[in-house]
Design a protein around this nucleic acid. Sequence first.
DNA 1: AAACAACTGCAATCGTAGTGCATTTATTTC
DNA 2: GAAATAAATGCACTACGATTGCAGTTGTTT
Lengths: 137, 137
Amino acid sequence: MKELERRLLEKQINLTAMRLVVLDYLVKQTNAVSLTDMELSLEKTDRVTLYRSVKTFEEHGLVHRIDDGTGVTKFALCQPACTIDGHHDLHVHFYCINCQETHCLPKAQIPEVKLPCGYERQETSLLVKGLCSECKK
Amino acid sequence: MKELERRLLEKQINLTAMRLVVLDYLVKQTNAVSLTDMELSLEKTDRVTLYRSVKTFEEHGLVHRIDDGTGVTKFALCQPACTIDGHHDLHVHFYCINCQETHCLPKAQIPEVKLPCGYERQETSLLVKGLCSECKK
DNA sequence: AAACAACTGCAATCGTAGTGCATTTATTTC
DNA sequence: GAAATAAATGCACTACGATTGCAGTTGTTT
Ligand SMILES: [Mn+2]
Ligand SMILES: [Mn+2]
Ligand SMILES: [Zn+2]
Ligand SMILES: [Zn+2]
Protein backbone atom coordinates (compact mmCIF):
# COMPACT_ATOMS: atom_id res chain seq x y z
CA MET A 1 0.00 0.00 0.00
CA LYS A 2 2.83 2.33 0.86
CA GLU A 3 3.97 1.76 -2.68
CA LEU A 4 0.83 3.35 -4.10
CA GLU A 5 1.11 6.32 -1.78
CA ARG A 6 4.71 6.79 -2.71
CA ARG A 7 3.78 6.81 -6.35
CA LEU A 8 1.25 9.57 -5.90
CA LEU A 9 3.48 11.71 -3.72
CA GLU A 10 6.34 11.26 -6.12
CA LYS A 11 4.24 13.01 -8.75
CA GLN A 12 3.05 15.58 -6.25
CA ILE A 13 -0.49 14.35 -6.19
CA ASN A 14 -2.36 14.74 -2.92
CA LEU A 15 -3.39 11.49 -1.32
CA THR A 16 -7.07 10.65 -1.17
CA ALA A 17 -8.91 7.39 -0.71
CA MET A 18 -10.39 7.65 -4.17
CA ARG A 19 -7.08 8.26 -5.87
CA LEU A 20 -5.52 5.30 -4.12
CA VAL A 21 -8.37 3.12 -5.32
CA VAL A 22 -7.98 4.36 -8.87
CA LEU A 23 -4.23 3.93 -8.87
CA ASP A 24 -4.54 0.50 -7.34
CA TYR A 25 -6.86 -0.42 -10.18
CA LEU A 26 -4.58 1.02 -12.82
CA VAL A 27 -1.46 -0.78 -11.68
CA LYS A 28 -3.32 -4.06 -11.93
CA GLN A 29 -4.31 -3.60 -15.55
CA THR A 30 -2.42 -5.16 -18.39
CA ASN A 31 -4.08 -2.98 -20.98
CA ALA A 32 -5.34 0.55 -21.32
CA VAL A 33 -8.74 1.23 -19.77
CA SER A 34 -11.58 3.63 -20.37
CA LEU A 35 -13.49 5.60 -17.78
CA THR A 36 -16.37 3.22 -18.29
CA ASP A 37 -14.09 0.27 -17.59
CA MET A 38 -13.13 1.84 -14.30
CA GLU A 39 -16.66 2.78 -13.48
CA LEU A 40 -17.83 -0.79 -13.96
CA SER A 41 -14.94 -2.35 -12.08
CA LEU A 42 -14.89 0.03 -9.16
CA GLU A 43 -18.32 -0.09 -7.63
CA LYS A 44 -19.54 2.94 -5.76
CA THR A 45 -17.42 5.38 -7.67
CA ASP A 46 -18.82 8.38 -9.38
CA ARG A 47 -17.89 8.73 -13.02
CA VAL A 48 -17.09 12.39 -12.71
CA THR A 49 -14.79 11.80 -9.80
CA LEU A 50 -13.02 9.15 -11.81
CA TYR A 51 -12.85 11.56 -14.69
CA ARG A 52 -11.22 14.18 -12.51
CA SER A 53 -8.93 11.75 -10.76
CA VAL A 54 -7.58 10.50 -14.02
CA LYS A 55 -7.31 14.04 -15.31
CA THR A 56 -5.21 14.96 -12.31
CA PHE A 57 -3.07 11.88 -12.83
CA GLU A 58 -2.58 12.86 -16.41
CA GLU A 59 -1.64 16.43 -15.60
CA HIS A 60 0.96 15.21 -13.15
CA GLY A 61 2.50 12.72 -15.52
CA LEU A 62 1.23 9.60 -13.82
CA VAL A 63 -1.00 8.36 -16.62
CA HIS A 64 -1.29 9.13 -20.30
CA ARG A 65 -4.34 9.13 -22.50
CA ILE A 66 -4.58 6.94 -25.55
CA ASP A 67 -6.73 7.54 -28.55
CA ASP A 68 -7.16 4.12 -30.09
CA GLY A 69 -9.56 5.18 -32.79
CA THR A 70 -12.61 3.73 -31.08
CA GLY A 71 -13.82 7.13 -29.99
CA VAL A 72 -13.40 6.21 -26.35
CA THR A 73 -10.36 7.56 -24.58
CA LYS A 74 -8.24 5.01 -22.80
CA PHE A 75 -5.72 5.53 -20.03
CA ALA A 76 -2.62 3.75 -18.87
CA LEU A 77 0.18 4.37 -16.42
CA CYS A 78 3.17 6.30 -17.65
CA GLN A 79 6.75 5.26 -17.72
CA PRO A 80 8.78 6.91 -14.92
CA ALA A 81 10.18 9.65 -17.15
CA CYS A 82 6.91 11.56 -17.27
CA THR A 83 6.45 14.42 -14.85
CA ILE A 84 4.20 17.39 -14.30
CA ASP A 85 6.30 19.16 -16.89
CA GLY A 86 5.12 16.82 -19.59
CA HIS A 87 4.91 13.36 -20.96
CA HIS A 88 8.22 12.21 -22.30
CA ASP A 89 7.41 8.76 -23.45
CA LEU A 90 7.04 8.03 -27.12
CA HIS A 91 5.83 4.50 -27.45
CA VAL A 92 3.51 2.84 -29.90
CA HIS A 93 -0.02 1.83 -28.99
CA PHE A 94 -1.76 -1.22 -30.29
CA TYR A 95 -5.45 -1.85 -30.72
CA CYS A 96 -6.58 -5.44 -31.26
CA ILE A 97 -9.52 -5.59 -33.60
CA ASN A 98 -10.49 -8.95 -32.18
CA CYS A 99 -10.41 -8.63 -28.39
CA GLN A 100 -10.72 -4.85 -28.68
CA GLU A 101 -8.07 -4.28 -26.11
CA THR A 102 -5.59 -1.47 -26.30
CA HIS A 103 -2.01 -2.03 -25.26
CA CYS A 104 0.99 0.14 -24.64
CA LEU A 105 4.04 -1.16 -26.44
CA PRO A 106 6.76 0.57 -24.44
CA LYS A 107 9.43 -1.34 -26.29
CA ALA A 108 8.27 -0.01 -29.62
CA GLN A 109 9.40 3.58 -29.76
CA ILE A 110 7.91 5.95 -32.28
CA PRO A 111 10.45 6.64 -34.99
CA GLU A 112 11.28 10.19 -35.89
CA VAL A 113 9.14 11.67 -38.63
CA LYS A 114 10.40 14.00 -41.31
CA LEU A 115 7.93 16.82 -41.62
CA PRO A 116 7.58 19.18 -44.55
CA CYS A 117 9.55 22.38 -44.32
CA GLY A 118 8.15 24.84 -41.82
CA TYR A 119 6.26 22.39 -39.67
CA GLU A 120 7.14 22.15 -35.99
CA ARG A 121 6.51 18.92 -34.14
CA GLN A 122 5.35 18.97 -30.55
CA GLU A 123 3.74 15.60 -30.01
CA THR A 124 3.58 12.36 -31.94
CA SER A 125 1.31 9.39 -31.57
CA LEU A 126 1.40 6.15 -33.42
CA LEU A 127 -1.37 3.60 -33.37
CA VAL A 128 -1.21 0.16 -34.88
CA LYS A 129 -4.35 -1.90 -35.35
CA GLY A 130 -4.33 -5.61 -35.87
CA LEU A 131 -4.32 -8.81 -33.88
CA CYS A 132 -2.62 -9.05 -30.54
CA SER A 133 -0.42 -12.01 -29.65
CA GLU A 134 -3.25 -13.71 -27.77
CA CYS A 135 -5.78 -13.37 -30.56
CA LYS A 136 -3.28 -14.32 -33.21
CA LYS A 137 -2.84 -17.81 -31.82
CA MET B 1 -17.82 18.43 -63.84
CA LYS B 2 -17.20 15.33 -65.87
CA GLU B 3 -14.08 15.00 -63.81
CA LEU B 4 -16.07 14.59 -60.61
CA GLU B 5 -18.37 12.03 -62.17
CA ARG B 6 -15.43 10.09 -63.48
CA ARG B 7 -13.96 10.01 -60.03
CA LEU B 8 -17.06 8.54 -58.50
CA LEU B 9 -17.58 5.96 -61.22
CA GLU B 10 -13.95 4.99 -61.03
CA LYS B 11 -14.58 3.90 -57.44
CA GLN B 12 -17.87 2.30 -58.38
CA ILE B 13 -19.96 4.81 -56.53
CA ASN B 14 -23.37 5.57 -58.00
CA LEU B 15 -23.82 9.14 -59.15
CA THR B 16 -26.21 11.34 -57.25
CA ALA B 17 -26.55 15.10 -57.02
CA MET B 18 -25.64 15.03 -53.36
CA ARG B 19 -22.51 12.98 -53.86
CA LEU B 20 -21.31 15.28 -56.60
CA VAL B 21 -21.80 18.25 -54.31
CA VAL B 22 -19.90 16.55 -51.51
CA LEU B 23 -17.06 15.47 -53.76
CA ASP B 24 -16.88 18.91 -55.31
CA TYR B 25 -16.50 20.32 -51.84
CA LEU B 26 -13.87 17.81 -50.85
CA VAL B 27 -11.63 18.38 -53.84
CA LYS B 28 -11.54 22.08 -53.04
CA GLN B 29 -10.28 21.61 -49.51
CA THR B 30 -6.66 21.96 -48.55
CA ASN B 31 -7.14 20.31 -45.19
CA ALA B 32 -9.20 17.54 -43.67
CA VAL B 33 -12.78 18.44 -42.84
CA SER B 34 -15.37 17.30 -40.35
CA LEU B 35 -19.01 16.56 -41.00
CA THR B 36 -19.84 19.82 -39.28
CA ASP B 37 -17.51 21.67 -41.62
CA MET B 38 -19.37 20.23 -44.57
CA GLU B 39 -22.73 20.88 -43.03
CA LEU B 40 -21.91 24.53 -42.49
CA SER B 41 -20.37 25.04 -45.91
CA LEU B 42 -22.97 23.19 -47.90
CA GLU B 43 -26.26 24.84 -47.13
CA LYS B 44 -29.36 22.77 -47.45
CA THR B 45 -27.67 19.49 -46.79
CA ASP B 46 -28.77 17.10 -44.14
CA ARG B 47 -26.10 16.00 -41.72
CA VAL B 48 -27.13 12.37 -41.89
CA THR B 49 -26.99 12.33 -45.65
CA LEU B 50 -23.54 13.83 -45.49
CA TYR B 51 -22.62 11.20 -42.96
CA ARG B 52 -23.78 8.44 -45.26
CA SER B 53 -22.26 9.96 -48.36
CA VAL B 54 -18.89 10.19 -46.73
CA LYS B 55 -19.29 6.72 -45.33
CA THR B 56 -19.93 5.41 -48.82
CA PHE B 57 -16.93 7.31 -50.11
CA GLU B 58 -14.82 5.81 -47.39
CA GLU B 59 -16.01 2.28 -48.05
CA HIS B 60 -15.15 2.66 -51.70
CA GLY B 61 -11.68 4.06 -51.09
CA LEU B 62 -12.41 7.61 -52.16
CA VAL B 63 -11.87 9.28 -48.80
CA HIS B 64 -10.19 8.25 -45.59
CA ARG B 65 -11.06 9.20 -42.07
CA ILE B 66 -8.58 10.91 -39.82
CA ASP B 67 -8.57 10.84 -36.07
CA ASP B 68 -6.67 13.95 -35.09
CA GLY B 69 -7.20 13.60 -31.38
CA THR B 70 -9.81 16.32 -31.15
CA GLY B 71 -12.62 13.82 -30.83
CA VAL B 72 -14.12 14.93 -34.11
CA THR B 73 -13.51 12.71 -37.11
CA LYS B 74 -12.08 14.44 -40.15
CA PHE B 75 -12.12 13.31 -43.75
CA ALA B 76 -9.94 13.86 -46.75
CA LEU B 77 -9.63 12.48 -50.24
CA CYS B 78 -7.50 9.41 -50.71
CA GLN B 79 -4.53 8.94 -52.91
CA PRO B 80 -5.38 6.97 -56.07
CA ALA B 81 -4.11 3.66 -54.73
CA CYS B 82 -7.09 3.19 -52.43
CA THR B 83 -9.94 1.02 -53.67
CA ILE B 84 -12.99 -0.73 -52.34
CA ASP B 85 -10.62 -3.46 -51.26
CA GLY B 86 -8.99 -1.18 -48.77
CA HIS B 87 -7.00 1.89 -48.08
CA HIS B 88 -3.41 1.51 -49.10
CA ASP B 89 -1.99 4.85 -48.22
CA LEU B 90 0.26 5.21 -45.23
CA HIS B 91 0.89 8.87 -44.76
CA VAL B 92 1.31 10.98 -41.67
CA HIS B 93 -1.37 13.37 -40.46
CA PHE B 94 -0.68 16.68 -38.84
CA TYR B 95 -2.80 18.65 -36.43
CA CYS B 96 -1.91 22.27 -35.85
CA ILE B 97 -2.57 23.27 -32.28
CA ASN B 98 -2.78 26.90 -33.32
CA CYS B 99 -5.08 27.04 -36.35
CA GLN B 100 -6.59 23.69 -35.41
CA GLU B 101 -6.45 22.45 -38.94
CA THR B 102 -5.65 18.89 -39.84
CA HIS B 103 -3.51 18.12 -42.84
CA CYS B 104 -2.56 15.05 -44.76
CA LEU B 105 1.18 14.84 -45.30
CA PRO B 106 1.28 12.47 -48.25
CA LYS B 107 5.00 12.95 -48.62
CA ALA B 108 5.62 11.79 -45.08
CA GLN B 109 5.15 8.06 -45.14
CA ILE B 110 4.67 6.14 -41.92
CA PRO B 111 7.82 4.17 -41.18
CA GLU B 112 7.56 0.50 -40.47
CA VAL B 113 7.04 -0.39 -36.83
CA LYS B 114 8.61 -3.38 -35.13
CA LEU B 115 5.93 -5.05 -33.08
CA PRO B 116 6.46 -7.49 -30.24
CA CYS B 117 6.50 -11.13 -31.16
CA GLY B 118 3.06 -12.47 -32.05
CA TYR B 119 1.43 -9.21 -32.97
CA GLU B 120 0.01 -8.83 -36.45
CA ARG B 121 -0.26 -5.39 -37.95
CA GLN B 122 -3.22 -4.49 -40.15
CA GLU B 123 -3.37 -0.71 -40.06
CA THR B 124 -1.11 2.03 -38.83
CA SER B 125 -1.80 5.65 -38.19
CA LEU B 126 0.61 8.34 -37.17
CA LEU B 127 -0.42 11.73 -35.94
CA VAL B 128 1.89 14.64 -35.30
CA LYS B 129 0.72 17.67 -33.38
CA GLY B 130 2.46 20.99 -33.49
CA LEU B 131 2.54 24.15 -35.54
CA CYS B 132 1.88 24.14 -39.25
CA SER B 133 4.06 26.08 -41.64
CA GLU B 134 1.61 28.96 -41.73
CA CYS B 135 1.29 29.30 -37.98
CA LYS B 136 5.01 28.86 -37.43
CA LYS B 137 5.85 32.06 -39.31
C1' DA C 1 -46.54 1.63 -65.44
C1' DA C 2 -45.61 -1.59 -61.88
C1' DA C 3 -42.05 -3.41 -59.02
C1' DC C 4 -37.85 -2.94 -57.00
C1' DA C 5 -33.65 -0.94 -55.30
C1' DA C 6 -30.98 3.00 -53.99
C1' DC C 7 -30.85 7.29 -51.84
C1' DT C 8 -32.40 11.07 -48.89
C1' DG C 9 -34.26 13.74 -44.89
C1' DC C 10 -36.36 14.18 -40.51
C1' DA C 11 -36.84 12.64 -35.81
C1' DA C 12 -35.04 10.43 -32.32
C1' DT C 13 -31.61 7.81 -29.63
C1' DC C 14 -27.09 6.72 -27.71
C1' DG C 15 -22.85 7.42 -25.37
C1' DT C 16 -19.02 9.95 -23.80
C1' DA C 17 -17.10 14.30 -22.39
C1' DG C 18 -17.54 18.09 -19.70
C1' DT C 19 -19.53 21.88 -16.43
C1' DG C 20 -21.91 23.92 -12.21
C1' DC C 21 -22.71 23.83 -7.74
C1' DA C 22 -23.56 22.33 -3.18
C1' DT C 23 -21.56 19.18 0.20
C1' DT C 24 -17.94 16.81 2.35
C1' DT C 25 -13.25 16.24 3.70
C1' DA C 26 -8.69 17.78 4.55
C1' DT C 27 -5.36 21.43 5.67
C1' DT C 28 -3.93 25.78 7.52
C1' DT C 29 -4.24 29.67 10.68
C1' DC C 30 -5.06 31.76 14.92
C1' DG D 1 -8.76 22.83 19.03
C1' DA D 2 -12.01 25.77 16.67
C1' DA D 3 -12.54 28.71 12.79
C1' DA D 4 -11.19 29.74 8.22
C1' DT D 5 -9.60 28.13 3.94
C1' DA D 6 -8.60 25.04 0.30
C1' DA D 7 -9.16 20.65 -2.05
C1' DA D 8 -11.88 16.89 -3.42
C1' DT D 9 -16.21 14.61 -4.20
C1' DG D 10 -21.03 13.48 -5.87
C1' DC D 11 -25.20 14.59 -8.11
C1' DA D 12 -27.67 16.92 -11.76
C1' DC D 13 -27.47 18.51 -15.95
C1' DT D 14 -25.62 20.09 -20.53
C1' DA D 15 -23.19 19.57 -25.01
C1' DC D 16 -22.30 17.36 -28.99
C1' DG D 17 -20.91 14.06 -32.36
C1' DA D 18 -22.20 9.50 -34.00
C1' DT D 19 -25.63 6.50 -35.38
C1' DT D 20 -30.21 4.29 -36.29
C1' DG D 21 -35.21 3.84 -37.82
C1' DC D 22 -38.33 4.76 -40.94
C1' DA D 23 -41.06 7.00 -44.25
C1' DG D 24 -40.84 9.41 -48.47
C1' DT D 25 -38.38 10.23 -52.82
C1' DT D 26 -35.82 9.24 -56.78
C1' DG D 27 -33.94 6.26 -60.11
C1' DT D 28 -33.82 1.45 -62.62
C1' DT D 29 -35.50 -2.62 -64.37
C1' DT D 30 -38.76 -5.47 -66.68
MN1 LIG E 1 0.95 3.94 -23.56
MN1 LIG F 1 -4.70 11.73 -45.07
ZN1 LIG G 1 -6.59 -9.32 -29.01
ZN1 LIG H 1 -1.73 26.11 -38.19
